[in-house]
Design a binder for these strands. Structure first.
Lengths: 338, 338
DNA sequence: ATATAAATTGGCAGCGCTGCCAAAACATCA
DNA sequence: TGATGTTTTGGCAGCGCTGCCAATTTATAT
């Protein structure tokens, strides 16, 4: 068997029409189950299509069908990363619910770079998707202009702290940060540190941090120590950062991590050094990764509804939801590390 | 500002042509930087396109351009899951290298279900992608027929244990299993157990298991105990399974997990019960997730080149590699748990 | 200045499909 | 039986773009 063996054209609707001895329009109607046609025509067409191995060409279909009727059945998705498990979870919810509605997702990964997002949006738009799903509320001016001009539905996921372009689905990162700080304060911690990755990149983490600091201030406290890392978030990085932080400010009694994977790394660091958690230092993460629930001491963290956000995004598009914000909230996971 | 405000048509190439006072073909040539055109024409077109906010319509472009020249610039991707971090890693390598070549990925998640894969392939094919990237070598007969008839490049990722349709990129799962068993045997373990998720679903895991058992047999051993789980692989599931296995066969001295996340869960279980690892029981995983390297005792596991597989898949398509298998191998991570 | 080669350009068919419309086939009623 | 309404059907334009080709402009050689 040879690849590329197909010499010329693939089977078209005209071939099926000839084979079934009906007109092209009839084939089109039967195959889409739209409009009226006789039972006999239906059978012949289906039979002929199967025999010929007809595969519809959706490029042609979307081009011909006026955008308003079906749209391209493509949905563009831009996420900042695939490394951070948060985003695959989002995707999972999104694609899972999207393809039950017959949509296909075209995805792009921006690497937390607004310029890259701009390029991706431009590129995705050229497929005339019926909707675009983005992450976060911050986009370049040009991206916003293009999005507006496209005249399609836009969903911005994850962050509800600010105005969106159309549909916004997520939770308040600020509130997550705030609630995390409140929890630590209520548990009696006072010399609280922060370990996070580059805040100028991950704007959601920055908002959590802002909420966190605000809660400290409201309680008459301030951040006791902090360690920022400029790598992509990972357990190894979290571990190193915690160790650096504790070396500089050994009396820190609790640490807030911008992400569970770093918190997990921090926890491993404590285990390795024989530090009691939370005796020596308390640890608090964010996102409630599955793994952290299986730990001997479950990590204290905040559950964010990632899968649900993806699902809600898909559903809002399918249902033609009105513009507006859908806040899915978050939930404290008490855990045993803070 | 209203969404859907665009009343009628979007800007087309004809609009740009009129604005720039050149012919449509010239616009097309300039915008694609193909063929020859004067400097002056180039400037006018670019300027007009920018002023009008022209967004090319790739549906039309791909339809018009004969498949052989550019193809649709879409690549269809089918992965079994987004939960298992293995697949986002694959995607990351793939999309990262793909969009530097101007390709966009349309993805589908099959949930380890061949029938679902069949549907997804059918659906993806209708976008006339220039290539399809699948996971694994096993597909339904109809899928294979369709793939062959499509006349496009096919990449099958991850598994090299068998014949592929066109390009195969991955490693030998059988060999991974075999090498894992060899390692345990060489380290002196004799009463070896297995914890894995449903082997009828995850065919790669099944092949690893087969290689593992073969190595045991060759050494005159047999599997001492095993515990299969039918949930999706996770740390919690791994922990529970290990505990169940140790309850049934307390003298098991080493356990092979089909996946690192389960191994990690198992490790947590041991920590929780105060069992020495590897004193009480040794643990060996698969895939070398990032996290496991940050553990106080790094997990003993097998590093599989997931990112590289995605990259190699993208590259082989971009370069028009010949049909064949690219084996990227794997690497033992000695770790400290086995 | 003229002939010839090279670069640039626009027109138009056609990619495969769907929407529209008028024609044909069938059903219903007086 | 003919008239009227209803369902089914096929033809054809056109979605926005690119490939091809012939026409035009420009550069080079004689």
């Amino acid at each position: 068997m040879t690849l590329h063996q197909v010499p010329g054209r693939l089977v078209t609707i005209a071939d099926v029409a000839r084979e079934a001895q009906v007109g092209e329009s009839t084939v089109s109607r039967v195959l889409r189950g739209q409009g009226s046609y006789s039972k006999r025509a239906g059978e012949r067409v289906l039979e002929a299509a199967a025999r010929l191995g007809y595969v519809p060409n959706r490029l042609a279909g979307s081009l011909a069908g006026n955008a308003d009727s079906v749209g391209s059945q493509l949905v563009g998705v831009v996420i900042p990363s695939l490394t951070n498990i948060v985003f695959p979870d989002l995707l999972r919810g999104l694609t899972g619910d999207l393809d039950t509605t017959g949509f296909q997702s075209v995805i792009g990964v921006s690497d937390y770079d607004p310029a890259r997002e701009e390029t991706l949006v431009e590129s995705l738009l050229s497929w005339r998707p019926s909707a675009l799903v983005l992450t976060g509320l911050e986009h370049t001016a040009l991206t916003v202009t293009r999005l507006r001009a496209a005249g399609i539905r836009i969903v911005e996921m994850i962050d509800t702290d600010g105005p969106g372009l159309d549909i916004v689905v997520g939770f308040s990162n600020r509130a997550v940060g705030h609630a995390s700080a409140r929890h630590l304060i209520e548990r009696g911690y006072r010399r609280i540190g922060y370990v996070g990755h580059d805040l100028s990149q991950d704007l959601r983490a920055a908002k959590r941090f802002a909420g966190f600091e605000a809660a400290l201030r409201e309680a008459g406290l301030s951040l006791h120590s902090q360690e920022l890392v400029f790598d992509r978030s990972s357990a190894a990085v979290g571990r190193a950062a915690l160790e650096a932080l504790m070396a500089r400010a050994p009396d820190t009694d609790a640490v807030y991590f911008s992400n569970d994977d770093m918190a997990l790394g921090g926890y491993f660091g404590c285990l390795g050094r024989g530090w009691a958690v939370p005796g020596r230092v308390a640890l608090f993460g964010c996102h409630a990764l599955d793994i952290t629930a299986a730990m001997p001491q479950p990590l204290s963290t905040m559950r964010t509804p990632r899968l649900e956000i993806g699902r809600a995004a898909a559903r809002s598009l399918a249902d033609g939801a009105p513009a507006g914000t859908i806040d899915l909230g978050f939930e404290l996971c008490q855990g045993a590390t803070a």
